[in-house]
Protein backbone atom coordinates (compact mmCIF):
# COMPACT_ATOMS: atom_id res chain seq x y z
CA UNK A 1 0.00 0.00 0.00
CA UNK A 2 1.62 3.21 -1.09
CA UNK A 3 1.60 6.40 0.89
CA UNK A 4 1.32 8.57 -2.19
CA UNK A 5 -1.73 10.75 -2.64
CA UNK A 6 -4.07 8.90 -4.93
CA UNK A 7 -7.34 10.69 -4.87
CA UNK A 8 -8.11 12.63 -8.00
CA UNK A 9 -10.09 15.79 -7.62
CA UNK A 10 -10.07 15.94 -3.88
CA UNK A 11 -6.34 16.33 -3.48
CA UNK A 12 -6.22 19.24 -5.88
CA UNK A 13 -5.69 22.56 -4.16
CA UNK A 14 -8.89 24.46 -3.70
CA UNK A 15 -8.27 27.45 -5.88
CA UNK A 16 -11.23 28.82 -7.79
CA UNK A 17 -9.54 28.85 -11.17
CA UNK A 18 -8.98 25.12 -11.07
CA UNK A 19 -12.55 24.16 -10.42
CA UNK A 20 -13.42 23.86 -14.07
CA UNK A 21 -13.99 22.26 -16.51
CA UNK A 22 -17.69 22.71 -16.07
CA UNK A 23 -19.75 20.06 -17.69
CA UNK A 24 -23.43 19.67 -18.34
CA UNK A 25 -23.78 16.45 -16.41
CA UNK A 26 -25.18 17.10 -12.96
CA UNK A 27 -24.20 15.04 -9.97
CA UNK A 28 -26.82 14.15 -7.39
CA UNK A 29 -25.29 16.80 -5.16
CA UNK A 30 -25.87 19.51 -7.75
CA UNK A 31 -29.52 18.53 -7.90
CA UNK A 32 -29.85 18.68 -4.15
CA UNK A 33 -28.06 22.04 -4.11
CA UNK A 34 -30.47 23.49 -6.64
CA UNK A 35 -33.43 22.12 -4.70
CA UNK A 36 -32.40 23.49 -1.32
CA UNK A 37 -31.58 26.94 -2.66
CA UNK A 38 -34.75 27.09 -4.73
CA UNK A 39 -36.68 26.34 -1.54
CA UNK A 40 -34.72 28.94 0.43
CA UNK A 41 -35.36 31.53 -2.27
CA UNK A 42 -39.06 30.70 -2.41
CA UNK A 43 -39.43 30.83 1.37
CA UNK A 44 -37.59 34.15 1.66
CA UNK A 45 -39.63 35.66 -1.17
CA UNK A 46 -42.82 34.24 0.23
CA UNK A 47 -42.06 35.52 3.75
CA UNK A 48 -41.64 39.06 2.42
CA UNK A 49 -44.72 38.64 0.23
CA UNK A 50 -46.72 37.63 3.29
CA UNK A 51 -45.82 40.90 5.01
CA UNK A 52 -47.34 42.62 1.98
CA UNK A 53 -50.64 40.82 2.29
CA UNK A 54 -51.59 43.08 5.20
CA UNK A 55 -52.74 45.78 2.82
CA UNK A 56 -52.21 46.87 -0.78
CA UNK A 57 -50.30 49.91 0.43
CA UNK A 58 -47.79 47.79 2.33
CA UNK A 59 -47.55 45.57 -0.72
CA UNK A 60 -46.35 48.47 -2.82
CA UNK A 61 -43.60 48.99 -0.24
CA UNK A 62 -42.60 45.35 0.20
CA UNK A 63 -42.69 44.35 -3.45
CA UNK A 64 -39.34 46.03 -4.21
CA UNK A 65 -37.92 44.35 -1.08
CA UNK A 66 -38.46 40.93 -2.66
CA UNK A 67 -35.55 41.16 -5.11
CA UNK A 68 -33.38 42.86 -2.46
CA UNK A 69 -33.83 40.08 0.08
CA UNK A 70 -33.82 37.30 -2.49
CA UNK A 71 -30.28 38.34 -3.32
CA UNK A 72 -28.97 36.74 -0.13
CA UNK A 73 -29.86 33.10 -0.90
CA UNK A 74 -29.31 33.58 -4.64
CA UNK A 75 -25.77 34.91 -4.31
CA UNK A 76 -24.90 32.05 -1.95
CA UNK A 77 -26.37 29.65 -4.50
CA UNK A 78 -24.14 31.07 -7.23
CA UNK A 79 -21.03 30.33 -5.16
CA UNK A 80 -22.04 26.69 -5.21
CA UNK A 81 -22.76 26.41 -8.91
CA UNK A 82 -20.40 23.84 -10.33
CA UNK A 83 -21.98 22.81 -13.58
CA UNK A 84 -23.38 24.65 -16.58
CA UNK A 85 -27.14 24.64 -16.60
CA UNK A 86 -27.68 24.78 -12.83
CA UNK A 87 -28.86 28.38 -12.98
CA UNK A 88 -31.32 27.48 -15.74
CA UNK A 89 -32.68 24.47 -13.88
CA UNK A 90 -33.09 26.71 -10.85
CA UNK A 91 -35.21 29.00 -13.03
CA UNK A 92 -37.29 26.13 -14.38
CA UNK A 93 -38.15 24.70 -10.97
CA UNK A 94 -38.75 28.16 -9.51
CA UNK A 95 -41.09 28.94 -12.40
CA UNK A 96 -43.04 25.74 -11.83
CA UNK A 97 -43.23 26.55 -8.13
CA UNK A 98 -44.61 30.03 -8.75
CA UNK A 99 -47.33 28.45 -10.84
CA UNK A 100 -48.27 26.30 -7.88
CA UNK A 101 -48.90 29.42 -5.84
CA UNK A 102 -51.01 31.01 -8.51
CA UNK A 103 -48.79 32.90 -10.91
CA UNK A 104 -49.79 32.79 -14.58
CA UNK A 105 -48.01 30.43 -16.92
CA UNK A 106 -46.58 33.37 -18.87
CA UNK A 107 -44.68 34.33 -15.75
CA UNK A 108 -43.01 30.92 -15.59
CA UNK A 109 -41.79 31.37 -19.16
CA UNK A 110 -40.29 34.74 -18.25
CA UNK A 111 -38.49 33.18 -15.30
CA UNK A 112 -36.95 30.53 -17.52
CA UNK A 113 -35.94 33.15 -20.07
CA UNK A 114 -34.23 35.44 -17.55
CA UNK A 115 -32.53 32.44 -15.98
CA UNK A 116 -31.06 31.50 -19.35
CA UNK A 117 -29.78 35.05 -19.73
CA UNK A 118 -28.35 34.97 -16.20
CA UNK A 119 -26.63 31.71 -17.04
CA UNK A 120 -25.01 33.35 -20.08
CA UNK A 121 -23.73 36.21 -17.93
CA UNK A 122 -22.32 33.76 -15.41
CA UNK A 123 -20.61 31.78 -18.15
CA UNK A 124 -19.08 35.03 -19.38
CA UNK A 125 -17.67 35.52 -15.88
CA UNK A 126 -16.33 31.94 -15.92
CA UNK A 127 -18.59 31.10 -12.97
CA UNK A 128 -16.38 32.76 -10.40
CA UNK A 129 -16.62 36.48 -11.02
CA UNK A 130 -18.28 38.54 -8.32
CA UNK A 131 -19.60 41.17 -10.72
CA UNK A 132 -20.97 38.73 -13.22
CA UNK A 133 -22.84 37.10 -10.34
CA UNK A 134 -24.31 40.46 -9.33
CA UNK A 135 -25.37 41.21 -12.91
CA UNK A 136 -26.79 37.73 -13.28
CA UNK A 137 -28.95 38.27 -10.24
CA UNK A 138 -30.03 41.66 -11.53
CA UNK A 139 -31.20 40.01 -14.73
CA UNK A 140 -32.87 37.20 -12.84
CA UNK A 141 -34.82 39.77 -10.78
CA UNK A 142 -36.50 40.93 -13.96
CA UNK A 143 -38.88 37.98 -13.49
CA UNK A 144 -40.88 40.30 -11.23
CA UNK A 145 -42.65 41.56 -14.33
CA UNK A 146 -44.00 38.08 -14.95
CA UNK A 147 -47.22 38.17 -12.90
CA UNK A 148 -48.36 41.30 -14.74
CA UNK A 149 -47.78 40.06 -18.26
CA UNK A 150 -51.31 38.84 -18.97
CA UNK A 151 -52.59 42.20 -17.80
CA UNK A 152 -50.22 44.10 -20.05
CA UNK A 153 -50.78 42.01 -23.12
CA UNK A 154 -54.50 42.40 -23.17
CA UNK A 155 -55.28 45.42 -21.09
CA UNK A 156 -58.50 46.33 -22.88
CA UNK A 157 -60.06 42.95 -22.50
CA UNK A 158 -59.28 42.92 -18.78
CA UNK A 159 -60.69 46.32 -18.18
CA UNK A 160 -63.76 45.59 -20.20
CA UNK A 161 -64.46 42.42 -18.31
CA UNK A 162 -64.58 44.43 -15.12
CA UNK A 163 -65.91 47.66 -16.55
CA UNK A 164 -69.07 45.79 -17.27
CA UNK A 165 -69.17 44.87 -13.61
CA UNK A 166 -70.38 48.30 -12.62
CA UNK A 167 -67.34 50.56 -12.75
CA UNK A 168 -68.01 53.68 -14.70
CA UNK A 169 -66.27 54.10 -18.00
CA UNK A 170 -64.29 57.12 -16.65
CA UNK A 171 -62.59 54.90 -14.14
CA UNK A 172 -61.78 52.37 -16.76
CA UNK A 173 -60.19 55.13 -18.76
CA UNK A 174 -58.22 56.32 -15.75
CA UNK A 175 -56.99 52.82 -15.10
CA UNK A 176 -56.12 52.49 -18.73
CA UNK A 177 -53.92 55.54 -18.45
CA UNK A 178 -52.43 54.38 -15.15
CA UNK A 179 -51.56 50.92 -16.40
CA UNK A 180 -50.00 52.27 -19.57
CA UNK A 181 -46.79 50.77 -20.76
CA UNK A 182 -44.43 53.53 -19.50
CA UNK A 183 -45.74 53.30 -15.95
CA UNK A 184 -45.46 49.55 -15.81
CA UNK A 185 -42.05 49.64 -17.42
CA UNK A 186 -40.94 52.11 -14.76
CA UNK A 187 -42.13 49.77 -12.06
CA UNK A 188 -40.28 46.99 -13.74
CA UNK A 189 -37.15 49.09 -13.96
CA UNK A 190 -37.45 49.82 -10.25
CA UNK A 191 -37.58 46.10 -9.56
CA UNK A 192 -34.46 45.53 -11.63
CA UNK A 193 -32.65 48.28 -9.75
CA UNK A 194 -33.72 46.58 -6.55
CA UNK A 195 -32.38 43.34 -7.99
CA UNK A 196 -29.02 45.05 -8.43
CA UNK A 197 -29.17 46.26 -4.84
CA UNK A 198 -30.09 42.72 -3.83
CA UNK A 199 -27.02 41.45 -5.61
CA UNK A 200 -24.87 43.94 -3.70
CA UNK A 201 -26.55 43.05 -0.39
CA UNK A 202 -26.11 39.35 -1.13
CA UNK A 203 -22.40 39.88 -1.77
CA UNK A 204 -22.03 41.92 1.40
CA UNK A 205 -23.79 39.27 3.49
CA UNK A 206 -21.66 36.59 1.87
CA UNK A 207 -18.53 38.42 2.94
CA UNK A 208 -19.80 39.37 6.38
CA UNK A 209 -21.28 36.01 7.34
CA UNK A 210 -21.14 33.03 5.04
CA UNK A 211 -17.48 33.20 4.06
CA UNK A 212 -16.42 33.69 7.67
CA UNK A 213 -18.71 30.87 8.74
CA UNK A 214 -17.26 28.53 6.14
CA UNK A 215 -20.49 28.20 4.20
CA UNK A 216 -19.44 29.83 0.96
Amino acid sequence: MSESPTSAAASAPASPSERSPLSFSFTARDIVTIAIFAVLYVVVVFAIGMVGVISPLVMVLTLPLVPVVGGIPYMLFLTRVRHAGMVTVFGVVFGLTTMAWGHPWQSALVIVAVSLLAEVVIVAGRYRSKWSAIWAYTIFSAWMIGPWIPLLLDREAYLEAQGAAGLGSDYVEQMDALLSAPVVLMLWFACIVCGFLGGLLGTAVLRKHFVRAGLA
Binding site: I31, V32, I36, V39, V43, V93
Partner: peptide, 17 residues
Protein backbone atom coordinates in the same frame (compact mmCIF):
# COMPACT_ATOMS: atom_id res chain seq x y z
CA UNK B 1 -32.65 16.89 -13.36
CA UNK B 2 -35.98 18.71 -13.14
CA UNK B 3 -38.10 15.82 -11.86
CA UNK B 4 -35.67 14.94 -9.07
CA UNK B 5 -35.13 18.59 -8.14
CA UNK B 6 -38.86 19.12 -7.75
CA UNK B 7 -39.20 16.01 -5.60
CA UNK B 8 -36.31 17.07 -3.37
CA UNK B 9 -37.79 20.57 -3.10
CA UNK B 10 -41.06 19.12 -1.91
CA UNK B 11 -39.14 17.29 0.82
CA UNK B 12 -37.14 20.39 1.80
CA UNK B 13 -40.11 22.72 2.12
CA UNK B 14 -41.20 21.50 5.56
CA UNK B 15 -37.57 21.53 6.75
CA UNK B 16 -37.03 25.14 5.72
CA UNK B 17 -40.46 26.19 6.92
Amino acid sequence: AIAVTLAVMLRFFPVVA
